[in-house]
């Protein structure tokens, strides 16, 4: 199953990001299954390595988005402190976005790590 890199186009929501991560994680782990069997049979699927790299770059893009949200939240916080904020919900919404995105990305990364560890523990 061919995996496509996530993101690249601006405006992808965090929920869709999470959805796509889940699908890719499942696909990656099922691809790893096939790879393990193939390795046991003596041959390694070269495509698996490429899919692994796609997943890593997807995580990387998610982290970049979190970084950007964190930066906007910090800027808005400074504006609020110096009295230059126009609307209060401006700051609150940005801060909530940053918080949620951080929690989401952290959880997704943890799940990915757990999935990876589980795969590695599989007896061959």
């Amino acid at each position: 199953m061919a995996l496509s890199p996530i993101g690249g186009v601006g405006g992808i929501g965090a929920a869709q990001l999470a959805q796509a991560y889940r699908q890719q994680a499942l696909a990656a782990s099922s691809a790893s299954d096939a790879a393990t069997r193939a390795a046991a049979a003596g041959s390694v699927d070269a495509g698996t390595a490429a899919r692994g790299a796609d997943f890593a770059s997807a995580i990387g893009q998610g982290l970049q988005q979190v970084q950007n949200l964190d930066q906007s939240a910090a800027t808005k916080a400074v504006q609020a402190a110096t009295g230059n904020l126009t609307d209060i919900h401006d700051y609150v919404i940005t801060a909530t976005k940053a918080q949620t995105a951080t929690e989401l990305t952290t959880t997704v990364r943890n799940k990915a790590m757990d999935a990876f560890n589980e795969i590695m523990r599989m007896p061959l």
């Binding site: 964190d70 939240a73 916080a77 609020a80 402190a81 700051y91 801060a95 940053a98 918080q99 951080t102």
Partner: peptide
């Protein structure tokens, strides 16, 4: 805002 920075 200060609380938010720390909780992040």
């Amino acid at each position: 805002a200060t609380g938010d920075r720390f909780s992040l």
